[in-house]
């Protein structure tokens, strides 16, 4: 209809799907390669750390153990071989899915981890759900009404969540909600009721961060030029808030949700051992207390691997939600 087509147009014209997909695939391929390299780096670091003190065998046994016992452990775990040889052997094992044998349980560490992990996953997922369900509406409401009571509440919850130790909170919850008021079970696994207290205690740190982040993202996005454009179109306040402010603000939450989820795996060490849930955290606690270094090493590598995969998933998800990343490469 108009003859006035910009002369610069072809340069910025979006590519036809084929090269575009190639760029996107390249980007993700690159990220996958990076993640694998990172994984090997982590394995090497953890492996070296365990051997940094010199001889893990002497750490693993009781002080009064005799030289014979120590020598036996050394031989079983190959601590007597040169470190480089141990490392290459271990890396080879890891690639074939063998993370070593537990000293404490006399069993494959990977099998132990795999049997314990689902319980922790359920706990962490529930905690994440608690955090999001409470934090997102509160953060949006606070950021949309700066200085109002709801904003003060959001800031309060945001700070309180970040400063409350989960291991202390779960103790309080057990004493009051569990014992004094008798509302929920005080330990163990079983029904959904067994999940409420530990999941809530585990969620508060993430909840605090989510509230703060959502609130400040909303505050920031409110001042963006495109929000002014949306208002200048005559959109109702609620439409501007929902379609333009909240959607953009929540994008910044995507990147930390994955991070917080992996933090929860770490946090489960407290919650599971206090609430007597036989998950990965409790396994790590037991391994640390028993100085079962092969198991500590395996769990650490497992959690790090999970973290790296989560980061990758987050990146992909972020790319799906933010067209700038999707097309930027």
């Amino acid at each position: 209809m108009s003859s006035l087509t910009d002369s610069v147009a072809p340069a910025a014209r979006s590519a036809v799907p084929n090269p575009l997909a190639r760029i996107a695939r390249n980007y993700y391929l690159r990220r996958v390669a990076q993640s694998i390299a990172l994984m090997f780096g982590v394995i090497i670091i953890v492996f070296m750390l365990v051997r940094l003190t010199g001889d893990p065998a002497s750490l693993m046994v009781a002080r009064e153990a005799d030289a014979e016992q120590i020598a036996e452990i050394r031989e079983i775990y190959g601590f007597d071989k040169p470190v480089v040889e141990q490392l290459t052997t271990y890396l080879g094992d890891v690639v074939t899915g063998d993370l070593g044998r537990s000293f404490l349980y006399r069993d494959s560490t990977l099998e132990l981890i795999v049997s314990r992990f689902p319980d922790t996953l359920i706990l962490a997922a529930t905690a994440l759900a608690f955090a999001l369900i409470i934090a997102v509406p509160l953060g949006v409401a606070g950021g949309s009404n700066p200085g109002r009571p709801i904003d003060k509440l959001a800031r309060f919850v945001g700070v309180l969540g970040q400063v409350t130790p989960s291991f202390w909170l779960i103790m309080l919850l057990i004493v009051y909600v569990g014992v004094k008021w008798g509302l929920l079970p005080t330990n163990g696994v079983g029904t959904w009721k067994h999940l409420v207290l530990p999941a809530f205690a585990l969620s508060v740190g993430a909840m605090g961060q989510f509230v703060r982040l959502t609130r400040s993202a909303v505050l920031e996005v409110r001042n963006e030029d495109f929000v002014r454009t949306a208002r200048s179109k005559g959109l109702a306040r609620r439409a501007v808030a929902r379609r333009h402010i909240t959607r953009n603000a929540l994008l910044s939450l995507v990147s930390v949700v994955g991070v917080q989820f992996t933090y929860m795996l770490g946090g489960s060490i407290y919650i599971e051992s206090i609430y007597a849930r036989p998950g990965l955290g409790q396994l790590l606690d037991a391994a640390v207390r028993a100085r079962d270094f092969p198991l500590v090493q395996a769990i650490t590598i497992f959690i790090a691997g999970f973290t790296i995969i989560m980061n990758l998933v987050t990146d992909v998800l972020y790319g799906l939600l933010d067209p700038r990343i999707r097309h930027g490469g």
Binding site: E224, T229, A230, H244, D322, R324
Partner: peptide, 13 residues
């Protein structure tokens, strides 16, 4: 119509 067409359009819509 505003000055900066980059920041004045919603990037994710």
């Amino acid at each position: 119509v505003f000055q900066d067409p980059i920041s004045s359009l919603n990037p994710v819509m």
